[in-house]
Every structure is written in C-alpha cells, then in structure tokens.
Computed example of a mutant assay.
Amino acid sequence: MIDFSVIIPARYASSRLPGKPLLMLAGQPMLAHVYQRACASEAKRVVIATDDERIAEVGVGLGAQVCMTSSTHASGTDRLQEVVSQLDWYADEIVVNVQGDEPQIPPKLINQVAHHLAAEPNAGMATLAEPIQDYATWVNPNAVKVALNAAGMALYFSRAPLPWVRDAPPNTQQSLPENFPFYRHLGLYAYRVHLLNQFVTWPPAPLEMAEQLEQLRALYQGVGIYVGITHQSPPAGIDTWDDYQRVKQALESTSA
C-alpha cells in the first residue's frame, strides 16, 4: 500500500456543457459518482477543488473535503497546485488528478497510476496508455498517441499518427501497420507535489501550444513522465450533451 491523495477539479463554467458536475445521473449529481469512484480507490484522502459555491455545497453534502479555488485558472493543473499549496502538502506527496466529468472511472486505474509514480523515483509524473487496436483511432486527432522509450518513459505525445511507419505498404485497407506497438494516451495523471509547484511557473511550451497538449510542457522542461500500459479502457468522460445522455442511459440501465 502506498500513500497518495486524489484531487477532483470540478468547474461549473464549462464552455460546452455548463454546470456538468451537477447534472443528474441515476439519481445523483455527476460529481457524486466521481467522488464515490475515487473513494473506492486506495487513496488516503479525496479532495474536491472548485470555484463554485453550488458545487462546493454538493461536495460538503457528500461528506467530502472541499477546497475553494480561484476562478481564473487556465487549467486543471493550476487548480491542483492551488489545492496542494493551500493544504501545505509535502513535496513528495503523490497526487492523482481525477477529472470531475468522469463518473465511470475505474478505481483500479487510479491505483495503477499512483503505484507507477511511486515506483519511478526519476519520474515527476505518471500517466496511462492503452494499445491501439484499429486504424481509425490511430489517425484520429482527438485520440492522443504516445511513444515510449525502453524504460516506459514518454518520448512524445501527439495528435498525429505516432509513430509514422515509413516503410509500411500503402494503407488501402485502413489497417494498422503490423508488428508495432501503438499506444493511445489516457488522460489520467499522477504528480509529485514539487512537480506541480514547478509546473505552474513554466510558460506554455511551443510544442504544447501547437498540439494543445499540456503534458508537453513537462516534457519540454525535461520532466520524466512514466507511462503505464493498461488493458482496462476507461469509459469516455462527459464533454457534451450527447455524452451526458449516453452515460446517463448506461448508468440508469445498470442501476435498474
């Protein structure tokens, strides 16, 4: 057993789906499902971080520790750093960022990413990836790909097909090149507190701005990111009204 904490950043002012942490799913706010999943992990504590009193009220009603944060943060990483600063967590504390719009996240994945970081003292961060099984995912810019070194550390993340297999035959059948491991990045992160404190002082990196991938800021600064491979693909989070309806139907059919 290792010591780690979970922080759930939860904003009300989502541009695509305002108020989504409070949307009802199977009789409970979305935030309740996320919180319960996080509590089912091995985390020693779970903190909800928000800038909205309505979300805070729901969190308190769940019995959660709630941390009020600034409404001006550019990213969830900035919100995490404010929490660890407010609560004065020690530099080597491991923190897992569980997004407030992932009500079906498997607790095992939360444990896995935390354990990976604990086992890799040279890594400032850890994350997860899964094998890509189909050509459509490989070429989809919304599916982030990652290339790894021999030690399982990230070499690069990209929205482009990664790596590009130069000598593969023309892909008329839309099939993956054979005999090569392609990986899709899963956006679940574990950090050490001292890395969070550094991260927010760095300006956005050119690679980060080009790809719109925040983790490239860490790679640009020379931070090691360990990537654990999982074969348990988490259900997609909720970004749109259609996503909400899909997850609502799934959860209500499960609880019926």
Rank of each mutant, 00 (worst) to 15 (best):
M1R: 14
F4A: 06
V6I: 15
P9D: 12
A13N: 11
S15A: 13
R16Q: 13
L17I: 08
P21V: 00
L22R: 06
L23Y: 13
L25A: 01
L25D: 01
G27C: 05
Q28F: 05
Q28V: 01
H33R: 06
Q36W: 03
Q36F: 01
R37W: 06
C39K: 13
A40H: 03
A40W: 00
E42W: 07
V46S: 02
V46E: 02
V47G: 02
V47D: 00
I48P: 00
T50N: 04
D51G: 11
E53D: 08
I55D: 01
A56V: 01
E57Y: 02
V58G: 00
L62V: 03
A64C: 05
A64V: 02
V66L: 07
C67S: 12
M68P: 00
S71D: 07
T72P: 00
T72I: 11
A74M: 10
S75T: 15
G76K: 09
Q81I: 03
Q81C: 13
V83D: 01
V84Y: 05
Q86D: 04
L87S: 03
Y90T: 10
A91C: 07
A91D: 14
A91L: 07
E93G: 07
E93V: 04
I94P: 00
V96A: 08
V96W: 06
V96F: 05
V96H: 06
D101L: 05
P107F: 11
N111H: 13
A114L: 05
L117F: 14
A118E: 11
P121V: 15
P121T: 14
A123F: 04
A123H: 04
M125K: 06
L128N: 09
A129W: 03
E130P: 02
Q133P: 02
T137L: 10
W138D: 04
V139R: 11
N142W: 10
V144R: 07
A147E: 11
A147C: 09
A147D: 10
L148W: 11
L148E: 13
L148R: 07
N149S: 06
A150I: 02
A150N: 08
L155H: 10
L155Y: 05
F157L: 13
F157P: 01
S158Q: 09
S158F: 07
S158N: 12
A160Q: 15
V165T: 13
D167E: 14
N171W: 13
S175Q: 15
E178T: 15
N179T: 10
N179R: 15
N179F: 14
F182W: 08
F182L: 12
Y189V: 00
Y189A: 00
A190S: 15
Y191C: 03
R192E: 07
V193R: 14
H194G: 00
L195A: 03
L196E: 01
N197I: 06
Q198G: 01
Q198W: 05
Q198D: 14
F199Q: 04
F199V: 02
W202C: 05
P204G: 03
P204C: 04
P206Q: 10
E211C: 08
Q212C: 09
L213R: 08
L213Y: 03
E214F: 00
E214Q: 12
L216S: 05
G224E: 10
I238W: 01
D242F: 04
D243E: 02
L251S: 11
S253K: 12
